[in-house]
Design a protein around this nucleic acid. Structure first.
Lengths: 214, 214
DNA sequence: AAAGCGGGTGATTTTGAAATCACCCGCCAT
DNA sequence: ATGGCGGGTGATTTCAAAATCACCCGCTTT
């Protein structure tokens, strides 16, 4: 789409009244032109190449084929296609699935028309845009992922030792607390330092704290 | 801060000219009042409780103590403190470290004043806000994390089998391809279905494709 | 000089996952 | 009835990580 031309949009939603209302709204905006519509994901996948919109507005919860499956299929066929999810779902799994499947944006249906307009323009311009509440969820997901990765990195015993370190215990105190020898504690600490790629126990504790491991 | 009052801000940046310029800019905005400043993370940590701003504007690359370390320390002391990173760094590690350490927003120094104004208001209102380029990076990080988790979930052999399944091969064809018995292939498939929490091989292939495992 | 501390190298045993395979069953097509 | 297919249960061997411990060294404090 060259400079000055209108952005072409395809709208996918199973609720006819919502879809048609949205199309009316978009048609009233001089920057956009609605070039296609579909009532479920399967229709979207079947028609998108023929319709060739600049941007696909895609609901998630739909019959026949949901928005995530449709997105996956579309992403395979059209790697550069801009897709903006427009849904009521704030469900973490839906959100992560949408992102993993290649969504360029995620907006909630409670957004104001002006927000939709600005978001469409941003996404077409190459930026990822999330609804504010969704951004919070994504950041929380990133934090959880880091904590989970950390937990997967260290064994239960190593975490035990790390917790003792965080309480300021010495090697011999930790040995007494966990009923193991000092030499065992030192070996666990060695593995902790290796796995976390840090140089000493203070750094390990700082890193573990940051990762919510302890 | 009650309705109608100005948002109080503390600015942390090691470059005096930038910091002072930013403070002038913020002071010109009727919605804000700058109540404190610091030239490094350590000063920020030391002073924030006394200063008690509604929002902390925090650079990352600073001497003495960087913004990430400061953020971690501040987050421990003041779990509800709003912190908006303001940095030039688009480095993935910095970004993830900031998020993991509890940043409420991440803005780049190339943002326009109006964007800064709107972002501060959004963050104080409880929303997480990221610069557009940063949102893209976060989404990519989420995708990578999912793929990495998938790779960590399955052994190399299981991935081999999954790739064969994706090519449409049958159990006996896979056995021939990998030089193992059909029974071995079936065991691998069983473990794949268990680990991915799916019910059949088609679902496993769909999920693996979505996760960029194959 | 000795004790206490953290950091380092090396070893052995145990444990659980990985990788292998056999066999059984139901369904469908021939 | 038979063959081909996917799904299921169970077993054995191998291997790498987990968990354990011994010993040595340098530094600091007493």
């Amino acid at each position: 789409m060259s400079s000055g031309q209108r952005i072409s949009i395809m709208v996918v939603d199973d609720h006819a009244l919502f879809r048609r209302g949205l199309i009316s709204l978009l048609d009233e905006m001089p920057e956009f032109v609605v070039v296609g519509e579909a009532a479920n994901g399967q229709e979207a996948v079947e028609n998108i190449q023929r319709v060739a919109p600049d941007l696909l507005l895609l609901d998630i919860n739909m019959p026949v084929m949901d928005g995530i499956q449709a997105l996956s299929a579309i992403r395979k066929k059209l790697p550069e296609q801009k897709v903006l999810m427009l849904t009521i779902s704030q469900n973490d799994d839906d959100l992560i699935d949408a992102i993993v499947s290649g969504a360029n944006g995620y907006l909630l249906k409670n957004a104001e028309p002006d927000v939709l307009r600005a978001t469409i323009q941003q996404v077409v311009a190459g930026n990822a845009v999330l609804a504010p509440e969704i951004t919070n969820k994504v950041l929380q997901a990133v934090r959880r992922a880091k904590t989970d990765r950390g937990r997967g990195l260290l064994s239960d015993r190593e975490i035990d030792v790390l917790k003792c370190l965080a309480r300021g215990q010495t090697t011999s105190q930790i040995a007494a607390t966990l009923f193991i020898s000092e030499n065992t504690v030192k070996t666990h600490i060695r593995h902790i330092l290796e796995k976390m790629e840090v140089n000493n126990r203070a750094e390990a504790v700082a890193r573990a704290s940051q990762m919510d491991l302890i």
